[in-house]
Design a protein around this nucleic acid. Structure first.
Length: 422
DNA sequence: TCTGGGGTCCTAGGACCC
DNA sequence: TCTGGGGTCCTAGGACCC
């Protein structure tokens, strides 16, 4: 039998906060989104206190802190760096792997035939990461990705288990799928779960038993793959090289509300500048830049959502051109008198720099479009550690004036934040 | 007072071609 | 009275993921 493993970091952001703070062991920890808006990660203890994922911080703040809970603003430089370390270790252990998200990876266990060997490999893997990085992980092993997800779910809930679970024989699979709600299956979200319930499908086992043709007809090929995967038939491959991105988004919610174009413009410029950096980092060029603005979903009166694009005659990656396009798109999108809560920028229609579609009218119409690879390269390297070169239209306070009151030090990515002994 | 950010894939339908 | 068949490409919207 062929196996693959899902390595999933436990409560990743919360665990990262603990790595350099051993005093926080066993303590409830939550990590907040931008602007300290809502809860995006919880330690086991915080979950036990009933803190729900995604809940607005202001709703639970008082009670949570009163019970001795600890709280952090998100510290993505730290999480990103610890993630990289975990992934590097895994990369050294197998021939093929897929980094699925900041805290998850699929490993191809092609060198292993027996389930007990797979289990032992999992234990070794887990111990190594624990010792070398300090992050606890759990590992699910199975013949397909969807089942590996299930197995990792089992590993999480096992009391006193080793944090590793291998799911391979048919009987085990059936028994475990019976205990799992259909909505918990990887690939079945809120909507699908509701529709499946209406058809009398409640557990993952029910879903596995459904008629493939019916699934295809009533739903889609995506759900068909999920069903086949639950039956042990691999349909979703391990992608060991990441495809080039198809779009880049930079967006933020605002702390307050923004109702004037003059205030919004510099923020959109910041998004555009950041998007340009990401685009060049991907070594891609884009032909379209779009801007979107939105009022708060939770404010019932005065709602507006706007979206407009600017199309370039040929692919560009020069920030000055992106800024020009963003500005034009913003002017079409913004409406006076609305209290905007969120805005963003989206780059799309990508092409590789070596492939340039020339425009028939380019020379005549678009000489003003700026494109200077060397200049961009120079600015990027000057700004790589810390922003030193700004565009005149930017807001000086960085990406957007967001609030982060409880952020931990960047222990591993900034010299001034290195951990110190007392 | 205060509610995240960044992605992917699939499908249906319209526009167009011969 | 009668009105083809087969295809591609693009986009918007819906679903999902972490």
């Amino acid at each position: 039998m062929k196996f693959l493993a899902l390595v999933d970091c436990d409560n990743f952001y919360a665990s990262c906060e603990r790595v350099f703070r051993p005093d926080l062991k066993q303590k409830p920890i939550v990590v907040l989104s931008n602007n300290d808006g809502c809860v995006i990660a919880r330690s086991k203890e915080a979950k036990a206190m009933g803190i729900k994922m995604g809940i607005p911080w202001f709703k639970v703040k008082k009670a949570y802190l009163a019970q001795g809970g600890k709280v952090f603003s998100s510290n993505f430089p730290l999480y990103g760096d610890l993630s990289k370390r975990v992934m590097n270790i895994l990369d050294g252990m197998v021939k093929r792997m897929e980094v699925y998200s900041i805290d998850e990876a699929f490993l191809d266990l092609q060198h292993i035939q027996q389930s007990n060997q797979a289990y032992e490999f999992g234990v070794y893997c887990r111990n190594t990461i624990r010792q070398w990085v300090g992050i606890p992980v759990r590992i699910g092993i199975a013949p397909t990705k969807t089942l590996a997800k299930v197995a990792s779910h089992v590993a999480k809930n096992q009391k006193g288990g080793a944090g590793v679970y291998c799911l391979s024989n048919k009987k085990d699979i059936a028994n475990i799928l019976k205990t799992i709600c259909v909505g918990e299956v990887w690939g079945v979200g809120h909507r699908l779960s509701k529709q499946l319930n209406q058809l009398g499908t409640y557990s993952a086992y029910d879903l596995m038993q459904m008629d493939i043709r019916l699934i295809r007809k009533k739903f889609s090929v995506v759900l068909e793959r999920t069903v086949r995967e639950l039956r042990g038939e691999p349909c979703i491959r391990i992608e060991d090289h990441s495809d080039p991105k198809k779009q880049i988004v930079v967006s933020r919610s605002f702390r307050g509300r923004i109702d004037s174009l003059d205030l919004l413009k510099p923020l959109i410029s910041n998004f555009a500048v950041r998007a340009g950096e990401k685009l060049r980092h991907e070594t891609q060029k884009c032909s379209q830049v779009s801007v979107f603005v939105a009022t708060s979903r939770f404010q019932k009166n005065l709602q507006h959502r706007g979206f407009n694009s600017f199309h370039f005659p040929y692919p560009i990656d020069d920030t000055r051109s992106i800024l020009m396009g963003a500005n034009k798109a913003l002017k079409k999108t913004f409406k006076n008198g609305y209290p905007y809560a969120k805005a963003g920028i989206l780059l799309s229609h990508f092409s590789h720099p070596t492939f340039i579609q020339q425009s028939l009218f380019q020379a005549a119409d678009h000489q003003h479009l700026k494109q200077d690879t060397h200049l961009m390269h120079t600015i990027d390297s000057l700004n790589s550690k810390q922003t030193q070169v700004y565009y005149a239209s930017q807001h000086p306070a960085g990406l957007s004036p967001i609030q982060k009151q409880m952020v931990s030090p960047r222990y591993t990515t900034n010299w001034w934040d290195l951990p110190q002994t007392k």
